[in-house]
Structure formats: structure tokens, C-alpha cells
């Protein structure tokens, strides 16, 4: 009688034996009830293991991190000028806001209207202005993705962590917001959605960033977050690679719904 080892039994069940070895096991099974029982048991064990569902508590898929491409003329430091201008231009109605609020959550709450398609309000907390030029040397140039800068707002948080919210609009009305605030430990973009607003947040070089949208496909938002995280890197310049990446991001995922 052919001796079939335990390893071979498992390999037979896994269909990992070559044709001749597999035929030898099959022939042995026909003449050896004990071997047949082993194979049956292992087949059942494998079938049950294969059918086990994957765990459901997996964390959210991370947004694609920044790459190593050289990239931008835009600098976080340059944003200080924009913020200062905005704060100087408006009287600080935002100063009355409750201290200690999470600046990102406060920004989402404050800009939900704009993200939903509303016209910028002249009054209310913070400083809000419509931007006619479509671009700013202090903010990332997203024109390669056909996104034009259309709106700026000073983040209405009064605890000293105030930042800037820049609103971009696509050719079909898709709205994308970029928030820049005080920095935290360096981190890659991750999804931190706030209600119906999809948010991708990351930190780098002393600044925190959040990209947000209500109607943009999550995959597309992931891509934009990765590219803009690249743009925010120190010493980066907006080169062909990033323009291509921006263009790619603008067509990834499903269509923007507003």
C-alpha cells in the first residue's frame, strides 16, 4: 500500500500536488478507508475555514499618502499673509465664539452652507469673501483639475487656532473646501467625515489640513487629498507630475453630485 503522509493529504486537499502525485493519492484513497476519512475531514475543515467571513471591524481605508514627487509654488507659510489679510479686513465677529471648540469641526459647521452650494454670506461669524480671480499665489493652484478658487473664509474659532478655509468650484459646480489650521504631529491623509461632509485630514510641517466636500466621490476626494498633501510639502513646486495627478484626481471615482 502506498504511504501517504500528512503533508501530502493537506496538499492534495489544497490542490497543490502535481498531476502524478495527485493521482497517486486518489488511487490510495480508493483502497484505504482511513486515508479517505482523513481527506474527508481535511476537506470539510478547509471548506469551513474558506467560508469564514472577514472581520467587519476593519478601520477605514486610509487616503493615499503623499508621494515623493517634487512639487509647488504654494507654501503654508505664505498662507499667513492671506489669513492676516482676512483677519485685518474683517472685524473679528468670530472672537465671540466659544473657546476650545475643535477647529475643524467648527469649520465644517461654519462652511456647510457654502459646501452645499449657498452664496457666501457677507455677515455672520468669521470673515467671508468671494474670490473673483480664481486663483491665489498663497493657495494651491488646482486649475489643472479645473477647480478655481472662489471663496475664502477665516475660520471662526476663537481659541487662537484660527485658520483659513479656501473654497474651490469645478466647471459643473462641484465644491471642494480646503482648511488650513495650526499643525499637529505629521500624519498622512485620513478620512474623518463629519456628518454628510466628507473630510480628509492630514498634518505636515507645522500645519493641519483638511479637504472637504459634500458631493465629491470618496475616491476622488482621497486622490485630491493625496495630491494636495504633495503640494503642501516644503520645497515642492507644481510640476507636470502634479498637474497630471490633479487631472487624474478630477476624473477618478464617480461624478460629483454637487
Amino acid at each position: 500500500m502506498t504511504t501517504i503522509g500528512w503533508d501530502e493529504i493537506n496538499a492534495y486537499v489544497d490542490r497543490e500536488l502535481d498531476a502524478s502525485a495527485s493521482a497517486a493519492v486518489a488511487a490510495a484513497i480508493a483502497h484505504d478507508p482511513s486515508l479517505a476519512a482523513r481527506v474527508a475531514t481535511m476537506s470539510k475543515l478547509k471548506a469551513e475555514a474558506v467560508g469564514l467571513p472577514a472581520p467587519t471591524e476593519a478601520p477605514p481605508f486610509p487616503a493615499r499618502p503623499a508621494g515623493r514627487r517634487p512639487v509647488t509654488s504654494w507654501r503654508p507659510l505664505a498662507l499667513a499673509a492671506s489669513i492676516a489679510l482676512l483677519l485685518a479686513a474683517g472685524a473679528g465677529a468670530w472672537l465671540s465664539r466659544a473657546p476650545g471648540a475643535d477647529p475643524l469641526a467648527a469649520t465644517v459647521a461654519a462652511e456647510r452652507g457654502w459646501l452645499a452650494g449657498a452664496t457666501p454670506e457677507a455677515s455672520g461669524a468669521g470673515v467671508r469673501v468671494a474670490v473673483e480671480t480664481g486663483a491665489s499665489s498663497s493657495l494651491p493652484d488646482l486649475s489643472a483639475a479645473e477647480l478655481r478658487l472662489a471663496y475664502l473664509a477665516a475660520d471662526p474659532v476663537s481659541d487662537g487656532r484660527r485658520g483659513l478655509f479656501a473654497g474651490y468650484v469645478g466647471p459643473h459646480g462641484c465644491r471642494l473646501g480646503l482648511w488650513i489650521g495650526r499643525g499637529a504631529a505629521r500624519s498622512a491623509p485620513e478620512a474623518v467625515d463629519v456628518g454628510d461632509v466628507r473630510v480628509r485630514r492630514w498634518s505636515a510641517d507645522g500645519a493641519s489640513y483638511a479637504l472637504m466636500s459634500r458631493g465629491m466621490d470618496p475616491l476622488r476626494l482621497d486622490r485630491f487629498a493625496a495630491v494636495i498633501a504633495d503640494l503642501a510639502g516644503p520645497g515642492r513646486t507644481l510640476d507636470d507630475g502634479l498637474r497630471i495627478a490633479l487631472k487624474e484626481a478630477s476624473t477618478s471615482g464617480g461624478a460629483c453630485t454637487g
Binding site: 482511513s34 476519512a37 475555514a49 469564514l52
Partner: peptide
């Protein structure tokens, strides 16, 4: 360690998704 050789008697009825999960 090689498993014991000889006749085989295992209660296949005990093998189910839940017991496999617990066994793992």
C-alpha cells in the same frame, strides 16, 4: 510533530464555521 498514524475517527459533524472560528 507528525500526527499519529493509523485508523482515523474524527467527528466531522463538529466541524462548522463557529467551531473553526473558535478553534482558530
Amino acid at each position: 510533530v507528525e500526527p499519529t498514524e493509523g485508523p482515523w475517527a474524527y467527528e466531522d459533524a463538529r466541524i462548522a464555521a463557529i467551531t473553526v472560528r473558535q478553534g482558530l
